[in-house]
Write a protein that binds this DNA or RNA. Structure first.
Lengths: 296, 296
DNA sequence: GCAATATAATCGGAATATCCGATTGAATAT
DNA sequence: ATATTCAATCGGATATTCCGATTATATTGC
């Protein structure tokens, strides 16, 4: 068994097609064919049913699939750990959605460094699809994001309820006042939010929409405008009083999730990392709650 | 990365010597040398410090070691699962010490078959060293034995307290009567027992010693003799009254352990298997307890 | 210091495996 | 029928692996 055979197998499963798998792997189709054939010979079982519409997994292939994922992850992880400086004895990597990155990353790194100083940490921020891909490939051990796609071999655990509150830099006003509607910024908080938002405010016009929340915050600081934001992003402005929640405006909820492998390379370490995230998040939520309470 | 490179790496770690590793793997020393070298080149790190006394792991090699064990186990497991008949979707294998085999194996297989009918089961009985080797190589998922050797990457969990009671086929007697000393069979219940037994009865002569308990039971049935046995092995004879416990004789305790991998290929399935063992054992212990109570 | 010994690295050559590019073959849609 | 879309196969170039023998190196005993 060569790891490239496993990678090829997984790519064929993912694309359902020898030719596309060959393209993605930068080899010829005949090479893919040969790799799969030798894997099948070694295992003594057909892994794919080849037909007009590409390749479909056999039952035996399906049984290989889960282990294949693990093998790829494990080898990725092994290469990574071996490459570490000798002062470390293992590694843990965390990926965080861009919108949560700033708040979670540093406290978590500090927490981990205190609890496990010989663990090398790797942190990255990206959008959900990138995080999922890295999770699948074993580059990430844990990811934090909203609205994850369900995936075999991954545990999804809710761990953070976020409140999206309508904030404004207009003078204190009620949702009925409609002052806040002047210069409204629509922040893209994901599919669930878009749906809820549209049904609540079907006729609301926005002067622009922001993909990244920090843009919206900056805009609010410099203009009399309104936007849906989690309280923690405008903590400073709330304290100053420059930003106020719109009274009686509906609050949207959003659930942050922890995603990690069902079969980790190092279960103890993974759970330490998760514990760190929960602890860091609890602190974050407590702060936010106090602030929201004070502003109401 | 070829799996043979990992196997070779692990064998060199185990023997601490390229030549012995070559012998065990049935290849030449130059092949072992080349395999390790190519692995080192791929990883960009030296894995061993070569010296007069063989090969010692570097820090980087040590970081590879744990993953190497997992890789070997995982591939072993994958090959096994792929080879399964299509009616099954995964597999679980249990190894049991010879002395516990008969009592645990069948109930566990029945329990598992009821709870998870699509899981292919593999059961084997052997002495502890064989079980440990198979556990290490990924052939076994769970082992049940007394006095396991501590090993990296394995969880050891106590789950069964066994009482070794002095039984006799002489007429009912007290330990002070010394009738029972005529024709005493010393059963080898392991190192701990030997030690405790010797200090308790330093001058006790035995007519023979038995490595396998069933031999001792058979001997007791056919001769007026005595031996230390767990009650469950002489349940039938206790009910008939042909075998009696020696009153006031000290009871020796022995702890049965569950051993399994810290990083299993399929955690859910593993824990189902463990649950089955605990359930089966609880039943066994309850029966034994009732019987011992009745006999006293 | 000098063999004797044990260990791993290296080298040359044979065998084997891998990969590519082109072709073939099979199944399906038009 | 014909075109299209897949995967299998073949031939040849290249790369890798393996063995057997030799070499290099460090340790031990004398």
């Amino acid at each position: 068994m060569h790891i490239d055979q496993i990678r090829t197998f997984l790519e064929v499963v993912a694309t359902g097609n020898f030719n596309r798998a060959a393209e993605n792997l930068n080899v010829t189709q005949s090479t893919v064919s040969a790799r799969i054939r030798s894997l099948e010979e070694e295992l003594g079982r057909a892994l794919f049913e080849r037909g007009r519409n590409g390749a479909r997994l056999t039952a035996a292939g399906d049984r290989l699939l889960r282990h294949g994922h693990s093998m790829r992850r494990l080898w990725q992880r092994a290469r990574n750990d071996v490459a570490l400086p000798d002062a470390y004895d293992s590694s843990l990597s965390l990926g965080v959605t861009l919108s949560l990155w700033e708040e979670i990353e540093l406290p978590w790194v500090n927490w981990m460094h205190r609890e496990a100083p010989t663990v090398s940490l790797h942190v990255e921020a990206d959008y959900s699809p990138g995080l999922m891909r890295h999770l699948r490939d074993g580059i990430l051990d844990i990811a934090v994001m909203y609205e994850p796609l369900q995936m075999q071999e991954l545990v999804i655990e809710e761990f953070l309820r976020d409140e999206l509150i309508l904030f404004t830099t207009h003078p204190a006003c009620d949702v009925a006042d409609e002052i806040w509607r002047q210069d409204y910024v629509l922040v893209d908080w994901g599919e669930d939010f878009r749906y809820d938002h549209d049904s609540m405010y079907p006729d609301l016009v926005h002067s622009f929409s922001a993909g990244l929340s920090s843009v919206a915050v900056q805009y609010l600081e410099q203009n009399a405008a309104s936007a849906y934001l989690p309280a923690r992003l405008v903590m400073r402005q709330l304290k100053k009083g420059s930003v106020r929640p719109v009274r009686n405006a509906p609050v949207f909820e959003r659930t942050g999730c922890l995603i990690y492998s069902k079969s980790p390379a190092d279960g103890d370490l993974l759970h330490l990392g998760l514990e760190g995230l929960r602890s860091v998040t609890a602190e974050l939520e407590a702060q936010t709650a106090r602030l929201v309470e004070a502003a109401r």
